[in-house]
């Protein structure tokens, strides 16, 4: 029996071929395929689209940017071992535009597979789907292996916008394929394995690096992320966290910094105000 690992490895080794096939097939069926570098470009694209079509966006461009980041967390999310849960779709202007995330893409059928999205109503006027380039599978029948990994009450296959004679469904279907650093991962045979991930969540709740669960696509969920972190430690927060770490190691400096913060606190910073007394101060007073 073919394991999911073998199919995913084959796809990644021939990714350019399957993406080209998917593009050709979906375009022939009336869809549009757009290639973008990362979440920033996705947000810019969505902003332009909503402006051109005069679709109001509650929360403006910033809300589109946040949604783009949720839909396309990028390769760093793999390295951090973040939750594989699917982000929720965003629907704007009473169905004028719907922005979703793909579970899989099927090259031979030019199909986009969405899970957990009830098609309800007449469907959006414009359906945009965001997907990492690694989501592609060669054929529909490969889903016999992969769909059971993502159990859902609703699974949909979109193969284009509504066709002649259809009374509802999207008038436009746009697939956004995002690189998001994946092409760099592909170049490294050791890191490439991470792109086999289908976000099934089998490694949860322990999460990648802590679960010790058998991954259905053969990712070494314990060893690989740890090795990668050792090779290239992630910058967590940059200079601010380094400064914080330094201050935390000097008790007197820490207390002085706290006093300065309380003395010069400004409401316009929009953060919760610090208490009038520090814990140390309250402790000392309590002991007297």
């Amino acid at each position: 029996m073919t394991k999911p690992t073998e199919i995913r490895s084959h796809v990644l080794a021939n990714l350019d071929h399957y993406l080209a096939e998917l593009d050709k097939q979906l375009t022939a069926q009336g869809g549009t395929v757009v290639y973008l570098r990362g979440a920033d470009e996705v947000a810019d694209y969505l902003e332009l689209l909503t402006r051109e079509r005069e679709i109001p966006v509650p929360g403006g461009a910033e809300s589109l940017r946040r949604h783009a980041e949720r839909l396309e967390p990028g390769v760093e999310a793999y390295l951090r071992g973040e939750s594989p849960a699917d982000p929720e779709s965003l629907e704007l202007a009473d169905g004028a535009l719907r922005i979703s995330a793909a579970a899989f893409l099927i090259a031979d059928a030019g199909a986009i597979c969405l899970t957990g999205e009830h098609p309800g109503g007449t469907g959006p006027k414009i359906q945009v789907v965001v997907a990492g380039i690694e989501k592609v599978l060669p054929r529909m029948r490969d889903l016999a292996v992969f769909l059971p990994l993502l159990p859902s009450d609703t699974t949909r296959f979109l193969t284009g916008p509504r066709r002649a004679g259809e009374l509802d469904g999207p008038e436009e279907l746009c697939l956004i394929l995002v690189d998001g650093g994946r092409s760099e991962l592909l170049a490294s045979p050791e890191r490439r394995d991470l792109l086999r991930c289908v976000r099934c969540g089998a490694c949860l709740p322990g999460r990648v690096g802590g679960g010790g669960v058998d991954c259905p696509v053969g990712i070494d969920t314990e060893g690989l992320p740890l090795r990668l972190r050792e090779e290239a430690p992630l910058e967590v927060g940059g200079w601010k966290f380094r400064l914080w770490g330094y201050v935390m190691r000097k008790p007197r400096l820490y207390e002085f910094a706290g006093q300065m913060l309380r003395a010069f606190w400004r409401e316009e910073w929009g953060l919760p105000a610090p208490p009038a007394k520090s814990f140390r101060q309250a402790w000392r007073e309590g002991k007297k």
Binding site: D108, M140, T154, T155, R156, F157, L158, T159, R163, E166
Partner: peptide, 14 residues
């Protein structure tokens, strides 16, 4: 398997 292409959408509802 190619019959999926004959429609703009196929849905599996549980």
């Amino acid at each position: 398997p190619r019959s999926f292409e004959s429609s703009s959408e196929t849905a599996l509802i549980a």
